[in-house]
Structures are given as C-alpha cells and as structure tokens.
C-alpha cells in the first residue's frame, strides 16, 4: 500500500485533467488554462532546482524556454506543414503524433546545450555572477532571434496551430494536455529523485556552504553545471509545449517579463520546496487569469499582491518545507528512499 502513494496520485490527476478534456466536457479555454498551468509547473519546478535548492540566482529561464520553443516549433512547422517560412511539408501529416514529442525533446536538448555554454564560464565564481550572465542571456536571445529574418525576426513565428490540428485530425485526443501532463510528471519525478539522492542533495550542501562541500569531496563545479543543464533542458521542453499551445511566438514572449514570472512563482512557492512550486504555479496562473477583466490594472494588481504576500510570508507559501511536512500522516505513503533507509536503520 505504502509504495502506491505516488502512482495513485498521478493516476487520479491524470483522470481529472485528461478524461474530461477528451470527452469534451472542458471548453477550449479551460483546456488552454490547464496546459498553461502544466507548463508553468515545469518551469517553476525546474527553476527551483537552481534558485531554490542550489541557491544560485538565474534570471534567464525564459531565454532557455525560448530556445526550446523556437527549436521545436521550427522543427514541426518545417517538417509537417506548408508554411510561408520553408515552403512545402517534408513529411506527411500523419507523422505529427510522432514528430511532436520528438521535437519537444530536441527543444529540451537544444536548451540544455545552450545552457552549457552559459554555465561553463558562469560557475567559476559565486555570488550574483550567474544572475548577471543570465540577465544578459535574456537580451542576447531576444536580439539574436530578432536578427534572424528567415524565422520572422521581431515579427514572430507561427504555424504550430496546424501541427496541433493535424494531430487532432488524426486521433481526436487532447494531445497537448496529454504531453504537458507527461512532462510535468517526468519533471517532478526526476527532480524529486535527484534532490533525494546523495548526489543531488549535494546541491543543498553547496547552497549551505560551498567550500565545505568542495572539501568533503563534492565536485561542486560539475554538479552545478549538471543541475543547471537539467533545469534548462526542462525549461526548453516547457517552451516547446508553450509554443504549440499559444501557436504564435515572438522573441518578446521569452524576455525578462516571462523570466520574472517564473522567478515569482519559484519564490512564491518557497525556495527548495517542490510541492510549493506546484502550488504556486497553479495559484499564480489562475490568479493571472482571474484578474484578466482588470485589463491593464492586472499588471498593477499582480505585483502589488505579491509584494503584500512577501511582507506577510517572507519565505514563500511553503518555505523550504514540503507538503508532507505539513501533513506528517501522509508521509509514510510518499517518503523518499533515503528517509526509508534511515528509518529502517534506526528501527533495527
């Protein structure tokens, strides 16, 4: 029974998200919001790895998201659709169901490779160095795309709608929600495993005392780069999903404002709390949607609400705790490997 806590949770949320969409009980708008929530969860959870667990300060998550968004959209649009950018489709539409997830994966890999270029010089010194470099990355990404006229430059890129449509024509199924759901589960799964293993937990040690970590045999430089690439790769996959959800992207979609939103969700949830990240991504996305009638004032109300929230809860919603620390009774269903091992030893 204890071992099935996680699969049960995943199964239930799968049913809640996908079946009603499949049966058409959810309007397109609600489906859109669900996808957006999923994307934001991936972004928040992945950035939490760097800004929360590792205690570094990356402000360029949107740029890595953008790399993934452009890579995967270019791929699907180039391969599957007739479009003003590349002309005729190369592969038949029927392959869209297969190509789409592959393109997401390639988008993630592209973002991870891009992040490696950033990470190698960035992690030589500590402090706010990464913040500065990643801030510059926002500008560099936006400027670079704006200067590539072949993919629309500042006017943006589109055609992903056709790809999504092609998938739907083939098999009527909420494909976007489905893949978003899978990647959300995948992100949470690997990050949770990582930070609960001796190897991954060492990033918390780095946050706590980097010199002590290095002297206790932790290869801090390697670990930081690996964590950064992991995080940015997930952001790239989220970007691919985002591009196919909104069906029109331009370089400004993945600029500082988007980076700021991801940061806000991370700190709102709490540094180093996965469940906090999930909760805050859900709340924040819904809040933004609910404030939509306010029009321009939405952009005033959101930061204002957050400032007030920070004043009352300066550690975010969850602090560094997990939901399980709040409900200790549930703990036995979801405890991590290390906790189980330790407890087994204490008992014996």
């Amino acid at each position: 029974m204890k071992r099935f806590g996680m699969p049960a949770l995943i199964g239930i949320s799968f049913l809640i998200c996908i079946v009603p969409s499949w049966l058409g009980w959810f309007s397109n708008y609600i489906q859109f919001i669900i996808t957006l929530i999923g994307i934001n969860i991936i972004l928040t959870v992945s950035l939490n790895l760097i800004n929360g667990y590792m205690g570094e300060f990356s402000v360029g998550h949107a740029a890595f998201m953008g790399v993934g968004a452009y890579t995967s959209s270019l791929l699907t649009v180039y391969l599957l659709t007739e479009n003003p950018f590349f002309g005729k489709a190369i592969l038949p539409e029927e392959l869209s169901i297969l190509i789409f997830p592959i393109s997401l994966l390639i988008g993630g890999v592209a973002a991870a490779i891009f992040s490696l270029l950033i990470a190698i010089p960035s992690f030589r010194t500590r402090g706010d160095y990464l913040a500065i470099v990643t801030l510059a990355v926002n500008f560099i990404f936006k400027s670079s795309i704006e200067n590539i006229d072949a993919i629309g430059g500042p006017r943006g890129f589109m055609g992903m709608g056709k790809v999504v449509k092609a998938m739907d024509n083939l098999v009527s199924f909420p494909w976007l929600i489905f893949w978003t759901f899978l990647i959300v589960v995948f992100s949470i799964f690997i990050i949770r495993n990582f930070v609960n293993s001796t190897m991954g937990k060492s990033i918390i040690a780095i946050r706590d005392d980097e010199i002590a970590s290095e002297l206790m045999t932790v290869n801090t430089r390697w670990l930081k780069i690996v964590a950064f690439m992991l995080s940015c790769g997930l952001a790239g996959m989220a970007g691919g999903l985002h591009a196919h959800t909104v069906t029109f992207i331009n370089p400004s979609s993945y600029f500082i404002l988007q980076s700021t939103y991801i940061l806000v969700m991370v700190y709102l949830g709490g540094m180093g709390s996965l469940s906090g990240s999930v909760i805050s991504a859900v709340l924040f996305t819904i809040l933004l949607e609910m404030l939509r009638p306010l029009d321009v004032w939405r952009w005033v109300a959101t930061p204002l609400l957050l400032i007030i929230l920070m004043l009352f809860r300066p550690t975010g919603i969850m602090g560094s705790r997990e939901l399980l620390d709040v409900f200790p009774k549930l703990k036995k269903y979801f405890s991590s490997l290390q906790e189980r091992l330790t407890n087994a030893f204490i008992k014996s």
Partner: peptide, 26 residues
C-alpha cells in the same frame, strides 16, 4: 528586519519595478 532570504528582497525589487512601470501605464 524579518530576516528574509536575500533573494526574496531581489524579487520584491523586481515586483516594485513592475508595479511602477504598469502603474504608469494604467
């Protein structure tokens, strides 16, 4: 004064920037 983590201050600063900017727009 509440001993919040340094990065929470940075986020608050970002929020105030947005507040001023969009306050102006509104």
């Amino acid at each position: 004064n509440r001993g919040a983590h340094r990065l929470y201050l940075v986020i608050t600063a970002l929020m105030f920037g947005l507040l001023l900017e969009y306050g102006n727009l509104a």
